[in-house]
């Protein structure tokens, strides 16, 4: 029973750590499926994390904070869109610029507003997303096996976790079962064909970049108002890049994005519990190896040794209408 409880706890923190990765990964999925590479996921998450924590701290309402976070992320998305769609600039360079812009501006504004060395005040009460206890969770708590599973693992997360998991089937449905999704995927594979069909390439790509902004905004808000209680400098801590790695790992497919982010979330959870690995496998695994594992696995996947990851064909290419 003890081992079972430890396992449940481990999976519980896996879910918590996978949630921001999943949201950011789905964000990247929309953008890259439409042919816009986005290495600025990290920056957008960071900006959203700051603005949602800052506005939540000021207004006392986490919901207004969430909206502010999404708005901040959308502003960066708009910059990315203008640079890479309107002015046909280099999407990768634009992403790099956005990451730095967010890293610098968040600390600068945090210092100007709160004077606490680049952090926001700690969030309390309504300024934070509290865990939700699902119906009957307390009633079945003592039932063996199912009780802890339901009470610890499935119940007791903040609303954003459920939003993230619901976004997976929704994304699948939007991309593969709607006209919008078909066009979005087409614009990432062959924009000229979409253009010939009389559908706006620019409009579709801006729509994809905007969806990406909204999802990154939720991911960032989750970091500062649910996972932790407040913003600290550089709190995205490379999660945007792990999400990017997960996206490649998932080969740009929604359900696989869920599995990839859960796997990378598990690595994160294991990093904090070296005792569990040692008890289970009998080998002492270095924390540094676990930290590097998502990146290593992505490189191996990219290398095509374990199934080839082929990105959308028109990815990274600005579309120039023939004149």
């Amino acid at each position: 029973m003890d081992i079972y409880l430890t396992l449940i706890q481990l999976l519980d923190s896996t879910v918590r750590l996978a949630t921001p990765l999943l949201l950011a990964c789905l964000a990247g999925l929309y953008s890259e499926r439409a042919g816009i590479f986005d290495i600025g996921l990290e920056g957008k998450m960071l900006a959203a994390a700051f603005f949602s924590a800052a506005i939540a701290a000021m207004t006392g309402s986490v919901w207004i904070g969430l909206l502010a976070g999404i708005a901040a992320s959308l502003v960066l998305s708009a910059i990315h869109g203008i640079a890479s769609i309107t002015f046909r600039g280099n999407q990768l360079i634009s992403g790099v610029a956005i990451n730095f812009l967010a890293a610098g501006m968040t600390v600068l504004i945090a210092q100007a507003w709160f004077r606490q060395g680049g952090r926001t005040p700690s969030l309390i009460g309504k300024a934070r997303f509290e865990p939700i206890t699902l119906p009957f969770a307390e009633a079945v708590q003592d039932v063996p096996f199912i009780g802890p599973l339901y009470y610890e693992l499935i119940s007791g997360h903040s609303i954003l976790v459920y939003v993230a998991f619901a976004a997976v089937p929704l994304t699948w449905w939007v991309l593969f079962r709607t006209r919008f999704g078909l066009r979005l995927r087409a614009v990432g594979e062959n924009p000229a064909a979409v253009d010939t069909a009389g559908v706006s390439v620019v409009g579709l790509r801006f729509a994809a970049v905007a969806i990406c902004g909204v999802l990154c905004g939720i991911a960032g808000a989750y970091l500062s108002t649910a996972l932790q209680a407040g913003f600290v400098k550089d709190m995205a801590a490379g999660r945007g890049f792990i999400a990017l790695a997960a996206l490649i790992f998932a080969k740009w497919r929604p359900w696989h994005a869920l599995y990839a982010t859960l796997l990378f979330g598990l690595f994160g959870a294991l990093e904090t519990r070296p005792d569990v690995i040692e008890a289970v496998s009998g080998i002492k695994v270095q924390g540094q190896l676990l930290a590097a594992l998502p990146y290593l696995m992505t490189v191996i996947i990219l290398a095509g040794f374990v199934g080839k990851a082929i990105p959308p064909r028109a990815g990274g290419e600005p579309y120039v209408k023939e004149r």
């Binding site: 910059i79 203008i82 640079a83 890479s84 002015f87 046909r88 600039g89 280099n90 999407q91 360079i93 634009s94 790099v96 610029a97 956005i98 990451n99 730095f100 812009l101 890293a103 610098g104 501006m105 600390v107 600068l108 210092q111 004077r115 680049g118």
Partner: peptide, 28 residues
């Protein structure tokens, strides 16, 4: 002053943005 060192990161970002990604905005 009370300006954090991170101002440089912002300037760096703006330089990358304007000389790199938004090159066409100036050029066109």
């Amino acid at each position: 002053t009370t300006i954090p060192r991170d101002l440089i990161v912002v300037i760096q970002a703006l330089v990358i943005l304007f000389t790199g990604a938004l090159d066409n905005m100036v050029r066109m």
